[in-house]
Design a protein around this nucleic acid. Structure first.
Lengths: 133, 133
DNA sequence: CAGTATCCTGCACGATACTG
DNA sequence: CAGTATCGTGCAGGATACTG
């Protein structure tokens, strides 16, 4: 068995396993659902207002956007700021913590590309899949 | 070209965005559902037979285990091997590709731990609180 | 503009029984 | 042992209407 870098799996017995799975679940849950990922990515392009986000995400309903934003806020990934103007302006921002999703998403994306190539049968060029310019 | 660190998001406009999201979705989908993660982790401890896996994952039903294993097999993450003994023995194995989930899961886990600390209010000294207007 | 309030539908998942 | 087959349910998510 090859000794990879410190994979937590290596150190655990089965009863520990369920517990050590929890953080993984937490991470997955944070991006859970049909829309959170798109919302987060959208906010990586800059702070947005409710309607702006809605316009950028095809087919999302107000209800879902509202709900997902509240979820993201509860998870401290997104900050909601109300400006007391007339009419009221509400701005959504990624928190510092929310911005930390970037690296995670990049890792997911890299694996996803590998995965797609694998399933498509292209196994040869494993490293040649950088984003094309 | 060492720029491994930079986020793909930086380079994209919004219309590209949806497309670049697909691999991320692929990755998330590969671990989608209530049981896949546990099954994969279970197989990281060694090759297993159907009933063995079932015993290690509390509350999973035969139906769900069967279905999820078929999903994982379709995604080439798990290999199913039938040994022609009597009675028949079926062994489940992680493929090389399936083993590549290890690093991904570790990254998810790391972020998950950070996330939990963040939400619990324990912000490490390494990271300043992001409260400001 | 920035959302709620209702109502509805499909599908993920569960319970239980059966089989080669 | 290694699974199907059937039936049932909750809830994520959608459609549409309404509001301060």
């Amino acid at each position: 068995m090859e000794a990879k870098q410190e994979c937590f799996v290596e150190k655990l017995n089965h009863s520990d396993c369920a517990k050590s799975l929890l953080p993984v679940r937490d991470a997955l849950d944070a991006l859970n659902g049909k829309w959170k990922l798109q919302i987060v990515i959208s906010l990586m392009f800059g702070n947005k207002r409710f309607t702006q986000i809605a316009k950028e995400i095809p087919n999302i309903t107000d209800k879902m956007l509202s709900k997902e934003l509240r979820d993201l806020e509860a998870h401290q990934l997104v900050k909601r700021t109300v400006y007391d103007s007339i009419p009221v302006v509400v701005e959504y921002t990624l928190t510092e913590h929310g911005r930390s999703l970037r690296d995670l998403i990049d890792v997911l994306r890299s694996w996803g590309i590998k995965h797609r190539n694998q399933v498509m049968g292209k196994v040869e060029a494993s490293e040649a899949e950088e984003v094309e310019a």
